[in-house]
Design a protein around this nucleic acid. Structure first.
Length: 510
DNA sequence: GGGACAGCATC
DNA sequence: GTCGGAA
DNA sequence: TTCCGACGATGCTGTCCC
């Protein structure tokens, strides 16, 4: 198949807002691709590179060579070229990569160049990603979407499932099972503003809910096959070599083959959670692991059991999986957990866990099976919310659907000593289209200067901001930054002189 | 040897 | 990661 | 309900470059 055919399908998907029409356009391309190209085409049309990382992004594609006149490049050729580019390493690799990029892009037409650049930089915007692709695979192979979804969960990636479905239909999909050693997509949680709302979503008549502590670490899926242990992140990266103490822990469990799901987190000497940044630093570094594990050890906390000694547990009700987990994993490696027969009980557990320094809770339906890739009502997370009244210091012009609107706002806290404002971060979240329109007009009124896409404004507009916590920052002058900041509302009843101060923010850091 | 930068990952 | 819009 | 696309802060690695 030609890359131009993929570009055309992407165009067709972009051209309509109807999800069904997008699905049809993608499905047609899948059918046309044939078994050899299906996996690559499925990846491309869901905005993903099969190679995942190739060491080239926006900067490396800023200037492209002259385009070809006619489309000749095949999907397979492009895929091979990208694999080659991704494999280059060592001294001189930047130049070698640039040469290979130029060579590849010079064979593409202008439309193909634009598309491949967007694909490589993760900027494909066709209103169709993995969700539409699932439906498209089902349509193209004439198989039930639920079976595609399940196969993708178990295989971890859509491309190979698309290829299997097109080549062998339902029988081929049924061959895709849970394999110990191969990561599967982790189940995700929906979110709710408070425990009552979470209870409403997850509670089962007569059984209440299971409430888990939400630990502020990184997601961890552990596979054991005899003496071989593999550890995977939420995005299915293999991080086995980074966490030897977790490998050792898994090897002590009384089963030869198992798959467990949990969270890895660094604790301090008193057993309280360290700031997320410290867990992140430890779990993401792959050099000097031996010294690191001595100073910042990581503890696994498991909350689900997916497979044990030949038996898949995914479809069992949560309470049964959890009981089997508790039989297998010693208490120190189990996530804090309780059952609650009322929202009030669940709220008590929430407050206790937050007091212990944890991020919140995940409220779980006792009957829900393990279902990846969807944020259904089976699991619902709840975190405490903090708010501050801050002052807008500057605004950035938006892009995409926010083109022409002032979007991303720079947030500052008052410094009572100097009368200045100290920037604590930015946010573009929480604005309706109506608010976007209002703030565009408002900040153009307050404009003092412009630099690039940043509009600086007189620091007069107060905005109420919600956030999850304070992080230490080397980027911002106060040494602090807000985590997950979002707009609640603009406050016209407060002047900048009444905004919250850096001292208030500092006291929240704890 | 060490800082700057780009890319990619975590949340 | 959060959030709003849209199917 | 579900999916998509607006974009956030931070830390590590590999490479370049002085």
């Amino acid at each position: 198949m030609l890359l131009a055919d993929v570009v055309a399908a992407s165009r067709a998907a972009s051209a309509t807002r109807s999800r069904l029409a997008k699905t049809a356009a993608v499905a047609e391309a899948l059918r046309a691709a044939g078994p050899d190209d299906a996996a690559t085409v499925a990846a491309y049309l869901s905005g993903v590179l099969p190679q995942r990382r190739i060491g080239v992004s926006w900067r490396g594609l800023a200037t492209l060579p002259d385009a070809a006149a006619e489309p000749t490049a095949t999907v397979a050729e492009v895929d091979r070229a990208l694999t080659t580019i991704g494999a280059v390493s060592g001294s001189g690799s930047a130049a070698a990569r640039a040469t290979a990029v130029t060579e590849l892009f010079s064979r593409l037409t202008s439309d193909e160049q634009d598309y491949l650049r967007a694909l490589v930089t993760g900027q494909v915007r066709q209103g169709a990603l993995d969700g539409v692709m699932l439906a498209a695979v089902a349509a193209a192979a004439d198989v039930p979407e639920a079976e595609v979804r399940r196969a993708v969960m178990l295989a971890g990636h859509t491309g190979p499932v698309a290829a299997a479905a097109l080549a062998g239909g339902r029988e081929a999909l049924a061959q895709i099972g849970l394999e110990v050693g191969r990561p599967l997509r982790p189940m995700l949680a929906a979110s709710a503003p408070d425990v009552d709302a979470a209870w409403e979503q997850a509670a089962v008549e007569g059984q209440g809910v299971v409430v888990d502590g939400k630990l502020d670490g990184i997601r961890l899926q552990a596979h054991r096959d005899g003496d071989d242990v593999r550890l995977f992140t939420r995005s299915l990266d293999d991080i086995t070599d980074r966490l030897p103490e977790v490998v050792e822990a898994v090897l002590t469990l009384p089963a030869q083959r198992l798959v467990v799901d949990g969270e890895a987190i660094a604790l301090d000497g008193a057993g309280r959670p360290r700031p997320f940044q410290e867990t992140a630093s430890r779990t993401m570094s792959s050099t000097g692991v031996d010294e690191l594990r001595a100073t910042v050890p990581v503890t696994p906390y498991f909350f689900d059991l997916l497979h044990v000694d030949g038996e898949d547990l995914l479809d069992l009700p949560a309470t049964e999986r959890f009981a089997r987990l508790a039989d297998l994993v010693p208490e120190p490696w189990l996530v804090p957990r309780t059952t609650a027969s009322s929202a009030t009980q669940a709220a008590e557990f929430f407050h206790q866990l937050v007091a212990d320094g944890h991020e919140g809770v995940v409220v779980k339906s006792p009957t829900a099976p393990y279902a990846a890739g969807r944020r259904g009502a089976g699991w619902v997370k709840v975190k405490p919310r903090h708010t501050l009244d801050l002052v807008v210091l500057a605004v950035e012009w938006g892009s995409g659907r926010r083109e022409g609107w002032l979007s991303n706002i720079h947030l500052g806290a008052r410094d009572p000593g100097t009368g200045d404002f100290v920037m604590l971060g930015k946010t573009f979240k929480g604005m309706t289209d109506e608010v976007l329109a209002w703030q565009t007009a408002r900040f153009l009124e307050l404009e003092t200067s412009r630099k690039g896409h940043v509009v600086h404004v007189r620091p007069e507009q107060v905005v109420e901001i919600a956030f999850d916590g304070i992080q230490t920052s080397s980027r911002y002058p106060g040494g602090m930054a807000l985590r997950f900041a979002r707009v609640i509302r603009y406050r016209d009843d407060k002047t900048a002189a009444e905004a919250d101060t850096v001292d208030t923010v500092r006291s929240l850091r704890g």
